[in-house]
């Protein structure tokens, strides 16, 4: 079960559901069901978002202006789809830079520790 905290989305590191949603929207817009299945694929089946968690996170992302909602013409019916805004793309990039920096530091320290053992 995944939870979205009540703090503002731009306060501190991104939660995993938010990071996965932004990642799923990075290449193209998607509607709710496509987001859930894509997140399951990205996380290799580890994360299955519930509708409550997904829409709670989408609500916060819309409020923060990181994503936007629009009508997507579907073959059968109109669906509300979501896409990243320039602001959201910027925040995703910042988070990825932070994670890369952390990964580099952790890898270097593990190597140092391995050499000392």
């Amino acid at each position: 079960m995944r939870h979205v905290s009540i703090r503002r989305i731009d306060e501190g590191p991104l939660s995993e559901p938010v990071l996965l949603i932004l990642t799923a929207l990075a290449d193209r817009p998607r509607h709710g069901y496509a987001l859930i299945t894509e997140i399951e694929t990205i996380s290799r089946g580890r994360v299955r978002l519930s509708t409550g968690t997904l829409y709670g996170a989408l609500h916060r992302l819309l409020n923060a202006g990181w994503i936007e909602r629009f009508d997507q013409q579907d073959t059968s019916r109109d669906k509300q789809a979501y896409r990243l805004t320039a602001l959201g793309r910027g925040h995703l990039q910042t988070e990825l830079d932070r994670m890369q920096q952390l990964t580099r530091t952790a890898t270097a320290r593990l190597k140092t520790a391995g050499a000392e053992v």
Binding site: R2, H3, I6, S50, T51, G52
Partner: peptide, 15 residues
Amino acid sequence: ESITLIAGAVLEWIE
């Protein structure tokens, strides 16, 4: 779904 929906409702009232 049921649990996260109830928790989500509480969070949305706080929002």
